[in-house]
């Protein structure tokens, strides 16, 4: 039972990691706490649903959902958030703007889709047993997508000029600009990258849930933000670790204590961790790496 629970935690962590890393990449570069993130996940899921029901391979639907998330996030920043930033809006105002966008997106989706539930038609596939853990085929694909996305992001941030420019912009945008980095372009790319992970995370989430409606993504925003904060705000690797901790903690709480309290345990753990390490799990490690790079 313990190993099975670990397996379940890995699936949850994979979905959370896709979404949380996307969230934190965008936050680290732009400093905008985008609370409409969960709703962009839902919108991406609807795009995947439409492409799958139109006859495309459902897994292609995941890619179309990711691409939609990427473009939509870029446009959201360009045409909604950036005008506020240009006017010098502070963090609190931006939070209100993102909450407003969240409500607008939810309501628009509700107008289009109604209050009904939808299912991306991907069969769960047969169960696979591995080291005492059980996964369905679709869960294995989700884990593989998450691992591939994390490795891709790691390579991007570590081995490419673009990644270094993103890290530099995240650390000190003014200094980065003075060093010749086109920070505006980097910001656009961060929204595109963040949106891609957001879209992939949204589609992975609704495939795993089985069904979804216009409010589904928004309902999962809290564990996503928790994973991002736990790892250290703005730290992609921290968000990966945070997702793993939150995913495992919720499943273990259900096994050991009571399913009713799995959220309480996960967030209790988050509070305790932040009391001990307010900067998050990997913030210090990451900052040392920035210096070294």
């Amino acid at each position: 039972m313990f190993l099975q629970t670990v397996g379940f935690g890995i699936v949850t962590a994979s979905i959370l990691a896709l979404a949380a890393v996307g969230f934190t990449v965008q936050f680290s570069v732009t400093n905008i706490l985008n609370l409409a993130y969960g709703d962009v996940m839902t919108a991406s899921a609807f795009v995947a649903y439409v492409s799958a029901t139109a006859g495309l391979n459902p897994w292609i639907g995941m890619i179309t959902g990711g691409i939609f998330g990427s473009l939509f996030s870029y446009l959201l920043n360009r045409f909604v958030y950036t005008p506020f930033i240009r006017r010098g809006s502070k963090l609190f105002v931006m939070i209100i703007v993102t909450i407003s966008m969240s409500l607008i997106l939810q309501n628009v989706m509700q107008i289009i889709w109604g209050p009904n539930f939808f299912t991306v038609p991907i069969p769960a596939g047969s169960s696979v047993r591995f080291l005492g853990m059980i996964f369905t085929t679709s869960q294995i694909v989700i884990i593989a997508v998450a691992v591939a996305a994390m490795l891709g992001l790691h390579s991007l941030l570590t081995f490419t000029k673009l990644g270094k420019a993103m890290r530099a912009t995240a650390t000190d945008p003014e200094l980065a600009r003075n060093c010749g980095i086109r920070t505006k372009r980097i910001t656009d790319l961060a929204w595109l990258l963040s949106g891609l992970l957001c879209g992939l995370g949204g589609v992975a989430l609704v495939i795993d849930l089985g069904s979804f409606q216009s409010t589904t993504g928004g309902e999962f925003l809290v564990p996503i933000i928790a994973a991002a904060i736990l790892g250290g705000v703005g730290q992609p690797y921290g968000a990966m670790l945070g997702a793993l901790v939150i995913g495992m903690a919720t499943e273990m709480a259900a096994l050991v204590i009571n399913p009713e309290y799995k959220e309480v345990v996960a967030f209790g753990l988050l509070i305790v961790m932040l009391l001990i390490r307010p900067q998050g799990l990997l913030a210090e490690v990451a900052s040392q790496k920035e210096v070294a790079a």
Partner: peptide, 30 residues
């Protein structure tokens, strides 16, 4: 069960281990 969770697999395993003949339920649609 806590509502709004991405997974209930651990709860499901516990239920399967208890071998019920029937399940009574009411939770949110999701």
């Amino acid at each position: 069960i806590a509502l709004g969770q991405p997974s209930y697999r651990t709860e499901v395993e516990q239920l399967l281990a208890a071998k019920p003949q029937v399940i009574f339920t009411e939770a949110s649609p999701q």
